[in-house]
Design a protein around this nucleic acid. Sequence first.
DNA 1: ACCTGAACACCGTTCAAGT
DNA 2: ACCTGAACACCGTTCAAGT
Lengths: 200, 200
Amino acid sequence: MPSKKIYHHGDLKNALIKAGVEILAKDGVSGLSLRKVASKAGVSHTAPYSHFADKQALIAAISTEGFRQLYQCLSDVVDKYKSNPKKQLIEAAWAYVQFAMDDPDRFKVMFSGVLQKEKQYPEFVEESQRNFQLVKMIVEVNQASGVLRGGSSDLAALSAWGIIHGFVMLMLEGQISHTVLEQATLRELVEFQLKQIMIK
Amino acid sequence: MPSKKIYHHGDLKNALIKAGVEILAKDGVSGLSLRKVASKAGVSHTAPYSHFADKQALIAAISTEGFRQLYQCLSDVVDKYKSNPKKQLIEAAWAYVQFAMDDPDRFKVMFSGVLQKEKQYPEFVEESQRNFQLVKMIVEVNQASGVLRGGSSDLAALSAWGIIHGFVMLMLEGQISHTVLEQATLRELVEFQLKQIMIK
DNA sequence: ACCTGAACACCGTTCAAGT
DNA sequence: ACCTGAACACCGTTCAAGT
């Protein structure tokens, strides 16, 4: 048997990303260590350095993968409700909220500055921008059909994203008071948020 | 000299909080360690445990102090523009943004889940709620004068807070694209965000 | 009550070495 | 090219001891 057993299953890099996501979901951001990730993937604690420059690089890869999945979720919604802009907007926002609640710690890694100097990771920047472009498209369609105010679609997209993102962050941080949460379901709260910026 | 030299300057607890804030501003969230804080305050690395149960408790104290200062900023604005609800709303939002940009890492500690199980810290919860009550007051005045939509002031306050908070978080995370930032000053962006929910 | 120093388990990272 | 094991500096936390 010559070069069949190539040390590992052949794709340690992706195995490490996957292990990282699992540890994140189980132990949270503070429980994510390179050594634990390596151990979960069945390699020594220095093996990850063959594939990632440091811990930040692994976190960048996890975040980038998260953005890819988020894009998938959002573009599915866009396709599904292509004929109804308003529905598209609401369901995309709902998908965003669900994505965040589904794995809060991965969402925090993507959006809470756990990754420093994100500009050093071109793939991260690209995937993140791809998501913004998609949001912008949704917003433009809604501007055209009079659901959202006109004007710069960059700024309008920022508003729509911001109002949902802000809600999600406050939600994840437990900042939304009990009295508010008693007044409506999560879905209703999201729709209420969007209604604030919709004119039709 | 009997009990004059009481081991320390007498208020190590607050000295540690202050040292923590300074380290946070200089080295960021990931650079904040209990040992560094202790060293900066001039005590041994185990001395903090006389005043805080663990690192989380120190972080809770830093966050709580941050909320106190934020409340001060916001209530100053409220007092200053008491006669003009709309101005009060805009300037309060602007003060919020400035507070965040002034010390981004402290803001992240307060709002990005660095502190886990925040419900275990009653002072943190109280100060955080006090800030929400203030936002609610500002929103209610603006609802009464027709600047903001009517309805539940809890939900309306959540929208106003959310849209600004979301903007700030995206800003701090570097998620706002260059093309957007070229279109307007930070102040203009904040006002644009608010205009999305204002009806007058 | 407040602080110290030794000790322990854990961490990120480097490096020389092995296949 | 890919992985290991020893080593180093740093960390949070505990504990027995000192004033």
